[in-house]
Design a protein around this nucleic acid. Structure first.
Lengths: 251, 251
DNA sequence: TTAACTGTTCAGTTCGTCCGAACGGATTAT
DNA sequence: ATAATCCGTTCGGACGAACTGAACAGTTAA
């Protein structure tokens, strides 16, 4: 087992089991055991514990992730000032643009979506609150990176790498840094099908005394183009981000 | 330590630490250690593990619950058929009534809110998605209990008890069961300030092949009264619950 | 400078986790 | 019917690892 010094292996195992339950959308003891290549009695012990603590559910012989995590997660999100402040803005942005609007914050070098609003004609993609994405291949992520100090950017790139997601993904650190410079000057970031083919995004950073977040509008390449891509959406985003920054300052 | 047979104590400790972090809204090693009365080096080991696994955050010397739990929780909620189906209904109910609308499911003998929509004049109370409440003192909970088999009801009451929350809380099992009978006949449930003083709720159950959920409308005693309390809201709830049941059947 | 806080490190020891095999129940094949 | 093969669960023993408490280092207050 890959165990660091002075850490609790059992905890690691428990969370690994939970991740498997999530990935398989519920599973039995044997399935989890073979997935992780550990004895099923061990898996059973962990699941028994998680069941008693009410973190997982058992229906018949199938264990699955319980809503206790939603309690922890929602509680955490609701305590974030940025969440309360950003939500009305993403909502009106979704109305005005008709597209999908997201907000994200940085955590452990990744982007975490905290809100999601669908406009009238929004495409439903694979985003949901809590979902984590790489920073280098999303408009949200690049907007955030552009506002972080360079040493921190290097740290993040070292830790997570720059995996190629589409043929447009930026995989060279220097190229990325040049783009971050452009984003800083321009004030907003683009994702030109760098994470998902056919999907374009525009994002603006929100910088508020330590916390860095970003707002984005996403839509299909066929619709997000021309003035919409280069003028209208950027302007709406910048003013929304500005409103959030002001409201954060006086909250 | 209260350790059951064949369970993993370390896992229990980790989750206990996480709960403390939630309750204190972030805390240091020493604070957590004294809260749980365990050595701080132990706490440190657990927090180190949770940090490496990205489940908690560390800002300076303060550890806090991370958004990883939101990922697990939201993912779980989004996989629930009932969630997708119920959301449009709670939204329109909130518009029509102007009050706070919630939906909850049963899990481990407790009610767990899965959606929340605020109408125009809704009072903001302490509910949020993922929040857990007792079943015996909420309209949502009683609506759910009324649809569960009696042995299961006894099990739940044994496990969780019937703590008194206000002077109106029903604390006698027989009295509760009589009310559940009334609810079954009438089709919907009331909360007459049984959980929070000044707050009234009406709730209707949603029964769909195994899953039991409930919808509720909540508001201040001063506004939720008369025909509103006895006719309008119940009718809206029943038809909304019915729509959900039908949509669940054909999904 | 000192004192009183932090969080962190470390090493020893005991405790509890992990494991493999055996059990019992349910389902399917023979 | 009977056997075979799944499943989840139980058990006890052994070894590894989690817990512990004291010492360390870094920070703030006196």
């Amino acid at each position: 087992m890959s165990s660091q010094a002075n850490t609790v292996n059992a905890t690691r195992t428990s969370f690994r089991i939970i991740e498997v339950l999530k990935r398989l959308d519920g599973a039995g003891v044997t399935a989890v055991a073979s997935e992780l290549d550990i004895p099923k009695s061990t898996v059973h012990n962990h699941l028994q514990t998680l069941l008693e603590e009410r973190y997982v559910l058992k229906e018949g012989d199938t264990y699955s992730v319980g809503l206790r995590f939603l309690e922890l997660g929602e509680f955490t999100r609701n305590r974030m000032d940025i969440y309360e402040t950003v939500r009305p803005e993403t909502e009106t942005l979704a109305e005005k643009t008709g597209e999908m609007v997201n907000a994200a914050v940085e955590e452990h070098g990744q982007g975490v979506y905290i809100t999601r609003h669908e406009g009238q004609q929004a495409v439903s993609v694979d985003t949901y609150a809590g979902k984590r994405v790489y920073l280098h291949c999303t408009a949200l992520g690049k907007a955030i990176l552009a506002e972080l100090p360079e040493p921190r950017v290097d740290e993040i790139l070292d830790e997570h790498g720059m995996p190629q997601r589409t043929e447009n993904t930026i995989t060279d650190p220097d190229e990325l840094k040049a783009e971050l410079e452009t984003i800083r000057e321009r004030g907003y970031a683009y994702d030109r099908e760098e994470r998902l083919p056919g999907l374009r995004c525009v994002a603006a950073p929100v910088v508020t005394d330590g916390v860095v977040a970003a707002l984005s509008v996403s839509g299909p390449t066929t619709r997000i183009k021309g003035d919409m891509f280069h003028e209208e959406i950027p302007e709406l985003l910048l003013s929304a981000a500005n409103v959030v920054e002001i409201n954060m300052a006086y909250s």
